[in-house]
């Protein structure tokens, strides 16, 4: 089989079949603790449940759409299935998928890139769950011996990680960055200011969507003109 066939006729169909099945299974299993409580006769008060859903859902619902769209190009099909089942996407899966592709020297978005991203995301899952498993046993103790300032400082790892990855991508494709970077800042400023008059779901999702699609659109236009 040719490379293209191995990828498109064997790998991807396997991933889609299992990815979809495991997502549905994951959806059902996510009710585990709720059901375990219900079996012991412990239920949430209905009014409190509805109140919390009505507060929380509008805050996160736009992410259901914007996150898969924004991250798909880097994660690929397998990476997307894995990332949305395992969570912590922007702060863990996406960086690991991206770093794996860069270090292996494969071009992101290509078949080889997708294969390597799959491996990167899988490794991040093993690391994440192992660290949490250690933490659930000894985490309270570990954090009790660390000064509060250190704990606060550790939270700065995530913004620093985002900036490092931004540097990688900007260096990889400076021409696209000439459009993408000003656009990201402009949309952030608009999103925090004037766009706030829009309904909140729109005000929250519009800036990232415009940034992502605007940058991709500009990149595709440049590539088609042969300027990249």
């Amino acid at each position: 089989m040719k490379n293209n066939d191995i990828f498109n006729k064997d790998f991807i169909p396997y991933i889609i079949k299992n990815g979809r099945l495991l997502s549905l299974l994951g959806m059902l299993l996510s009710f585990g603790p709720g059901i375990a409580l219900a079996l012991q006769g412990i239920f949430p008060p209905m009014d409190a449940l509805l109140a919390a859903v009505s507060i929380r859902l509008p805050m996160v619902a736009h992410l259901y759409i914007t996150e898969p769209i924004s991250y798909f190009a880097v994660l690929g099909i397998p990476g997307t299935y894995m990332s949305f089942l395992s969570g912590n996407i922007s702060n863990l899966r996406l960086p690991c998928g991206s770093v794996a592709q860069e270090s292996a020297g494969v071009q992101e978005g290509t078949d080889e890139g997708t294969i390597i991203a799959t491996i990167g995301v899988a490794v991040s899952t093993f690391v994440n769950i192992t660290v949490l498993a250690i933490g659930v046993v000894g985490g309270t103790y570990i954090t009790s011996i660390l000064p509060a300032k250190v704990l606060e400082g550790i939270n700065l790892l995530i913004p620093a990680l985002f900036a490092s990855l931004a540097a990688n991508y900007i260096r990889q494709n400076p021409k696209v960055a000439l459009i993408g970077v000003p656009l990201a800042f402009a949309m952030t400023i608009l999103g925090m200011g004037p766009l706030q008059v829009l309904p909140s779901a729109l005000a929250n999702s519009l800036p990232i969507l415009v940034t992502v699609f605007g940058t991709m659109g500009a990149g595709i236009a440049l590539a088609k003109k042969g300027k990249i």
Binding site: S98, A163, I208, G214
Partner: peptide, 24 residues
């Protein structure tokens, strides 16, 4: 080429946006 540019443009956009959200 286009596949690659979509991926790097996606990376530029999402990570710069995350940075902008913290810097602005």
């Amino acid at each position: 080429e286009v596949l690659a540019v979509i991926a790097t443009a996606g990376g530029v956009a999402t990570f710069t946006y995350q940075v902008a959200n913290r810097v602005v």
